[in-house]
């Protein structure tokens, strides 16, 4: 069973804020983490490998420092890491990202299963999973909340819905995106951390994956971010005090100018 897990390095949401002047994300001093949903995808992949054998390859597209999340995934039990990194990928939207990941997947190896977190906490689009499946020509199931049964021939899954869940049987190859709570991700083991520290990660450039320059990065992205801004800060409001009648008088007086 060959499993590929696509993961993403994101800024820790607890510390994210925008520069009030430039409206750009302030990255300095903000720790980068593995997208929280991806933890569940890595854990589910490792569990399936423990059950069925095979190997788990984690794949990420990002700047060189995104290698950190690959190491984190290896410390949690993944077998190999692949970093797809190139300046030409900068500015990719979900369309260009899924193209890049699809090209990379085809270079890596044949797969039975691809797992992703249902979305990343920075863009929050939840588009990359389905888009990647479309490009690879495999069926997909989003928002998987439980793998009920797993065998070499296929999976029985619960797909989370607003009013319960769908029960689905799928064959390989298939792509799944998983939700929080599908499992409890393990604490990285000491041996896993030691292995992750020294493991050589495979690095692929745009040329290595045979990407069309017009399909990657900014040129390949139909979505252009025109402006990012923080919502205006709301004023504190006015608190009227005194007896109820006095408060009503004050309220009426304060509304009069708008009449």
């Amino acid at each position: 069973m060959n499993i590929i897990v696509c993961i993403k390095q994101v800024l820790d949401a607890k510390d994210v804020h925008l520069d009030p002047v430039t409206n750009n994300l302030v990255r300095e001093g903000v720790p980068s983490i593995m997208n929280p949903y991806d933890h569940y995808a890595v854990e589910e992949a490792v569990r399936l490998r423990e059950l069925l054998g095979g190997k788990v390859t984690v794949l990420t597209m990002g700047p060189p420092q995104a290698e950190e999340v690959l190491r984190q995934a290896v410390s949690c039990g993944a077998d190999h890491g692949v970093l797809v990194s190139d300046r030409a990928f900068a500015g990719a939207d979900t369309w260009a990202t899924s193209y890049t990941l699809a090209m990379a997947v085809q270079v890596i190896e044949a797969f039975d299963l691809i797992l992703l977190g249902k979305q990343a906490i920075d863009g929050d689009t939840a588009q990359v999973g389905p888009s990647l499946a479309m490009r690879l020509g495999v069926p997909y199931v989003t928002c998987v909340q439980k793998v009920r049964e797993a065998s070499d021939s296929g999976l029985i899954l619960e797909r989370m819905m607003d009013d319960g869940y769908d029960l689905l049987a799928v064959d390989y190859p298939v792509l799944l995106t998983v939700v929080k709570g599908i499992n409890q991700p393990r604490v990285p083991s000491l041996k896993g951390k030691m292995r992750a520290k020294t493991m050589e990660m495979r690095k692929l450039s745009a040329a290595d994956i045979g990407a069309d320059p017009l399909c990657i990065g900014l040129p390949g992205s139909p979505t252009q971010v025109e402006k990012v801004f923080s919502p205006p800060v709301r004023s504190q409001g006015t608190v009227f005090t005194g007896s109820l009648d006095e408060q009503i008088d004050q309220l009426v007086d304060s509304l009069k100018p708008y009449l």
């Binding site: 393990r186 604490v187 083991s189 000491l190 041996k191």
Partner: peptide, 20 residues
């Protein structure tokens, strides 16, 4: 069990016996 999975029980055991 979680500690075992994280290899904490292996800390005092020599590497030749699967420890740390």
């Amino acid at each position: 069990n979680a500690m075992a999975q994280a290899d904490l029980f292996g800390i005092p055991v020599p590497e030749e016996f699967g420890g740390f």
